[in-house]
Design a protein around this nucleic acid. Structure first.
Lengths: 136, 136
DNA sequence: TTGCGTGCAAAGGTTTTGCATGGCA
DNA sequence: TGCCATGCAAAACCTTTGCACGCAA
């Protein structure tokens, strides 16, 4: 996706205006239509794929039933190096910088021969806030 | 699913014989066919749903592309946690059980308050085979 | 006998793909 | 101008659902 197009611009605009939460293809499609610049579903998927590849956007698969979610990532450089945690309850995205976790990448690479791609890997689970509210 | 049927028996048999790894509906279907007792896809899904509900089987959702994975759980108490690694090159899904990785879950829970959901968490990257073929 | 499980086929939804068209640089 | 992105429609895929039939208890 080397070229700049109205479709791409509008799509990124929407994602940037919703940094704080994840969205999906349906919502994106609805927004673009409401803006007077409807974009084909295939194009949206293709653009999102490209944005995920370049690390600007994160893709989340919450479960098999729901459609995939996408969220804009502000600092793509920094985000290449740490892990991300996504809360399945509240949707919060946590950027986790931790030397002990950095060890994981090394361990898996050295002992299991697998090279982790941080731009596409996300830990799913429940954040501390949601755990507390569940218990009390 | 109160009744015992040949289909159910055979399905559980297969899952029990593959406790150490994950499997999916395709593999189950192929096995049952090879055993001379083909079972409809709908039935397999229905039985699996029921087994998951009762806690005998665990379901893993890898991503939108791959079909769901299932694994027999021997002992609900001491069920061994594991991680899934998926190769972005060849699509191979690796089932990884490693004490050092189990430490990660504990570390993240204790130090970062985040409880990882293993049924939805997948590490994406490149497997050893693909890394070798890329370099050589 | 009663009710539940099964099988088939069809439907459901999300995502991908092929191909012609139109736009970016 | 040449290549790339778009759009449409169709396809691919996994999974669910409806309904009639057959088997378990």
């Amino acid at each position: 996706m080397k070229y700049n197009t109205v479709q791409k611009e509008k799509l990124i605009e929407f994602l940037m205006n919703n940094k704080d939460k994840h969205t999906n293809v349906q919502e994106i499609s609805a927004y673009l239509r409401s803006e007077g610049t409807p974009v084909g579903t295939a194009t949206i998927y293709r653009q999102l794929d490209s944005l995920v590849d370049s690390g600007i956007v994160r893709k989340f698969v919450i479960d098999g039933k729901t459609s995939a979610c996408y969220q804009y990532i502000e600092n793509k450089q920094e985000c290449r190096e740490h892990f991300h945690l996504k809360c399945l309850c509240c949707g919060k995205l946590i950027h986790l910088e931790c030397s002990q976790l950095a060890e994981i990448s090394r361990h898996i690479a050295e002992n299991h021969g697998f090279e982790i791609d941080h731009s596409q890997t996300v830990f799913y689970g429940r954040c501390s806030a949601c755990r507390k509210s569940d218990e009390g």
